[in-house]
Amino acid sequence: MKTLILTTAALALSAGLASAQTVRLGTEGAYPPYNFINDAGEVAGFERELGDKLCELAEKTCEWVTNDWDSIIPNLVSGNYDAIIAGMSITPEREEVVAFSQNYTPPSPSAYAALSADVDLENGVIAAQTGTIQANHVVDTGATLLEFPNPDETVAAVRNGEADAAMADKDFLIPVVEGDPDMVFVGEDIPLGGGIGMAFRKSDPELREAFTAAIQTMKDDGSLNELIIKWLGEDSPRF
């Protein structure tokens, strides 16, 4: 028994020393092309490639974790992972709870997708993902908001007639609309939020600084723009 306790203590101690380097990255895994679970069952997408590159630049060992969007901030602040990298736009409401790195995409437009071009966006039923800037925007326009836990279900709601249109980041909707001849973009693109950033605990400024510096490096050498073109398309705003 004594050896067992000693071994455990020794293990814990050695792990404690090494753990300064390991960063757990929390993502949703349901928001292509930003982050999704690919057919091999691994996290993939724009943010996977970006996150891996940033970890390399910041000289950290990173581990990917998926978490439901609804509880992604509570699990960050209670310490189940160390950063959120999940297509999360920088907004003042979120900044009250978490601290963001500098943005790694410029403020990008949101858009409406629907089955016909003459949908009433002011008075109709609009589907959006719970707890997103788009959901807030739909409420502000006065339309009826229909909330879903993940973005895929907002599009499904439009297809089966439950909602008149779905509102989401345009980068998410482009492949959806291109892949479905019945779907069209409706109305003007709407710029929302201050771009996408990584979220950290407020009590963790060193980690945030390390990643902000790594993002700056990628902005300066142009590699971030290359990633944006590769995953989000030529039309997506760049730095």
Binding site: A30, P32, N38, E153, V155, A156, P175, V176, G179
Partner: peptide, 10 residues
Amino acid sequence: GSKTDIFEYP
């Protein structure tokens, strides 16, 4: 859930 062309098996 529906899969776009970004997946290997849309």
